[in-house]
């Protein structure tokens, strides 16, 4: 029989401890990644309105691409896990359905985000 690592086992599929931990890790990373994002847009950026060409220039370097993918991923995880937490706090009963919807929604937004990034690179 396959011996799954302990991380993937436990109570149901909810993995409370792991989502809690990921929420902390994503929070810590967002402090950095979002910080750079805002800094890049407001401080580093000289012109009044952000233009396509500027954005494209930034995204021509690999670290920036990575930065935005991470920002997207952790931002979405943090946001949607946060929403889920609020709902459970309020006494949510239909947990599995909600998780399903949130995952689909999150994945969709991630797809949209990645699509946008690709648009800049191409």
């Amino acid at each position: 029989m396959l011996n799954f690592p302990r991380i993937l086992t436990g109570e149901g599929v909810l993995l409370n401890a792991m989502t809690w931990l990921l929420q902390r890790i994503s929070a810590a990373l967002l402090l950095v990644v979002l910080g750079i994002h805002i800094w890049a847009l407001y401080v580093f950026n000289t012109s009044e309105v952000i233009s396509f060409s500027e954005a494209r220039a930034r995204l021509s370097s690999a670290p920036y691409v990575l930065l935005y993918v991470l920002l997207l991923f952790f931002g979405l995880f943090h946001a949607f896990n946060g929403v889920y937490t609020v709902m459970v706090d309020m006494g949510l009963k239909t947990r599995k359905t909600t998780i399903g919807i949130l995952i689909i929604l999150g994945t969709a937004l991630f797809g949209i985000g990645v699509y946008s990034i690709i648009q800049f690179i191409m």
């Binding site: 979405l76 937004l109 946008s116």
Partner: peptide, 20 residues
């Protein structure tokens, strides 16, 4: 603020992508 930021994030992502 958390809920506000979630809404903004969704708006932000859709706006940028649709404009592209």
């Amino acid at each position: 603020t958390g809920i506000g930021l979630v809404l903004y994030l969704i708006l932000h992502a859709t706006l940028i992508s649709t404009s592209l």
